[in-house]
Amino acid sequence: MDDKLKRAIDRRMAGAALPGASKARMIQIAIKGKGSRSVRKRKMFITAAAVAAVMVSGCFAVQVIRDNIRQTMTSWEQTNEGTPLHLSQSDAGYTVTLDEIYGDTVMVYIKGMVSRDDGVPWQAAQYEGDTEEGISGARIWFEEADFVIPGYAEQMHQLEKVWKRAQYYFLTDVNPDDNKQEFIMSLSAQEFPLDGTITVLLQGLGYWEDTAGTQTHVIDGTWRFTVPVAREDTGETLAVGRSIQTAAGTVRLDTLRFSALDVFAEWSGANEALFAGDKENTYLLLKTGEKLPYQNRIIDHAGGTRIFMKFWDFNKGLGHISADDVQAVVFAGQEIAIA
């Protein structure tokens, strides 16, 4: 296997223990693991995210200490439901099923499954994250993963907006005797339509039978879906409109966006000021005292005077976060009160 691919699929996200507020929202937590894989294609770059996140202009994980994805998913799904998809494609002896979609106008999540048509268990290698990261997963990946929103590239060019992103995560195989593997896709765009269809293309499927990657299997298959995206807009938007002065200039927190499983902030200001500060002094501060560092910062406008900041993927396993859970946003060590 190519060394770059092995390095990309072996990166992990950081985790955190559930705070009391999130525990109260959850009836039960499925103690399972999750994995994360994403693919670097031509003209793409890997972000600063701990998970190798694919970002492309104009187009598109064993018992664990904690499980970021399942903990936050379970928190949200106690009181919300997605829209069933029931889409299935088979190729090269494997069937990919897209089961459910939910999200808002920025973030969309698609839950799915890959099964072996011969009924044989996968026996895919698993890994367990360290104490700090707390992430485990199945060592499975797609060679190519992409999605297309019809007309999106043209629309975003006119608005001088330049990004959208796709990530996917294979969950830990909690039943190694069956032939199925769960995954979730998280698709983000600045203007994600609430109706119509998108095209999701998955090509090539690989997995390791041992943690060292010496027994590698790659299946040359193609699974293409036309996915209806009609769904309830479950997002929450909080207008903030407050500025702070940093050593590099003035920045303004325009908006906080709360998706089902993630939180984002929209900032404006001078480009050099927008990229000041690191994960130790730039974070979302919850009323519980928990800190949610940023995962990556994406230029939201071609001029570089606006950024879209994504806080830690899947809320570090803290459960669904709403505006009522937030105390402040800290940028480059300076606090902007929200509560």
Rank of each mutant, 00 (worst) to 15 (best):
T72W: 05
G333T: 11
R12V: 14
Y168N: 07
W141Q: 07
W163R: 09
G319E: 06
M107C: 07
T250L: 09
S259D: 15
K287M: 02
P193W: 07
A138S: 15
L284Y: 11
S115P: 00
V251F: 04
F275D: 01
S115F: 01
L286N: 03
I321G: 06
V106F: 13
D177Y: 04
G119K: 11
E160S: 13
K41P: 00
E266N: 14
D254F: 11
I29N: 08
P19M: 09
A323T: 09
A230F: 08
K23F: 11
A145K: 04
A337Q: 13
I65K: 15
V329D: 10
T288I: 04
G134E: 11
T97Q: 09
A125D: 06
V329A: 13
A153K: 13
E81A: 15
A145C: 03
G196C: 06
A61L: 02
V106W: 07
I140R: 08
T131C: 00
Y169P: 00
G196H: 06
D67L: 00
G333W: 04
M73A: 11
D91N: 12
V174F: 14
W163G: 11
K316Q: 15
A24V: 15
Y294E: 09
I299S: 13
K164H: 06
L261S: 03
E290Y: 10
F147G: 01
E132A: 13
G235D: 09
I46T: 05
K180L: 05
V51K: 02
A30H: 14
H320S: 14
I219R: 06
L159N: 13
Y127A: 00
R165S: 12
H320N: 15
A8M: 04
D325R: 08
F183C: 03
Q334L: 13
V240D: 11
Q327K: 15
K291A: 10
Y109D: 06
Y152A: 06
R224M: 04
L187H: 04
A16Q: 11
E128N: 06
L187V: 03
G129P: 01
E81H: 13
A276P: 00
D278W: 12
M55T: 05
T282L: 11
T305H: 14
K32Y: 07
E81C: 10
I321L: 15
E272R: 15
V106A: 05
